[in-house]
């Protein structure tokens, strides 16, 4: 039996998986900093509570959103994904072209350790450690929840989106536990660029669907949009780099 998997399902899984992995790396850095500094009990409790809260949000809003009429939902979701995706893509392009400092997990780790070292040490049920770990995982995870809900509901593949996000949580969690503290080696900026391109592609596609535009090839056009925006991102990185170097040249 040949399994037929649509291209949009593959792109959706990859987009959710990579988006979730990027945010998980950032959240895990904070949890590691808390665990190493204040003990693992409260750090893991905080992280687990945040994950449970995020899962509850998906369970609460997912089925409710499925009942909203698809045309209007796709337009709203598409516009939301466009704003969100353009912000990610802009940041990734600025980092790739050297105009913005890259996200440094080592610096985030050191900063969190310094903050926690100054705080008074608590009992086994350390409240500060719990709150910092909870906040780190919850805030990073909220972006994932929005991505999962918007992409999953619009494509009528909420289960697939949730499964992809859960897989990313497990994979990054296991890899992170093995390599411990070496999360700075993860090519976060490249991942962010890919997620940005995918979110913008889905955003353009769903906005178009909401506005009843005609996409050549139907759902397959998502792959075409991903390819187009990847080329555009590459050209924009080259343009910004050239612009920055010419400005530096004039300043000299």
């Amino acid at each position: 039996m040949v399994a037929v998997v649509s291209s949009s399902a593959v792109v959706l899984s990859v987009a959710v998986f990579v988006a979730c992995a990027v945010e998980m790396v950032e959240a895990l850095t904070i949890v590691f900093a808390v665990g190493h500094t204040r003990g693992w009990g409260a750090a893991l409790r905080g992280a687990a509570t945040a994950l449970a809260t995020l899962a509850a949000l998906v369970a609460l809003f997912g089925p409710a959103l499925v009942r909203v009429p698809l045309g209007g939902l796709r337009l709203v979701v598409g516009a939301l994904l466009l704003v969100f995706g353009l912000q990610w893509l802009r940041k990734a392009i600025l980092r790739s072209s050297g105009l913005k400092a890259r996200h440094d997990e080592d610096a985030v780790y050191a900063e969190t350790v310094t903050e926690l070292s100054g705080a008074p040490t608590g009992p086994p049920g350390d409240r500060v450690a719990f709150v910092v770990a909870f906040k780190g995982v919850f805030l990073e995870g909220l972006e994932v929840v929005i991505t999962v809900l918007t992409l999953g509901v619009s494509a009528h593949r909420l289960t697939l989106a949730v499964a992809s996000a859960a897989a990313a949580v497990v994979v990054v969690g296991v890899v992170g536990a093995v390599v411990s503290r070496q999360l700075s080696a993860v090519p976060e900026n490249a991942m962010k660029l890919i997620v940005g391109v995918m979110l913008v592609s889905f955003g353009t596609f769903w906005t178009g669907e909401g506005l009843k535009v005609h996409w050549i090839g139907g759902d397959v056009m998502i792959v075409g949009l991903v390819a187009t925006y990847l080329v555009v991102a590459w050209l924009l990185i080259a343009w910004i780099r050239q612009r920055a170097s010419s400005v530096t040249g004039v300043a000299r």
Binding site: L86, L89, R90, I93, V200, T207, K212, V213, Y229
Partner: peptide, 15 residues
Amino acid sequence: GLGAVSLVVLVVGAL
């Protein structure tokens, strides 16, 4: 058809 093209062009322009 023009709607599809204009969406992509406007996204690239905004970025």
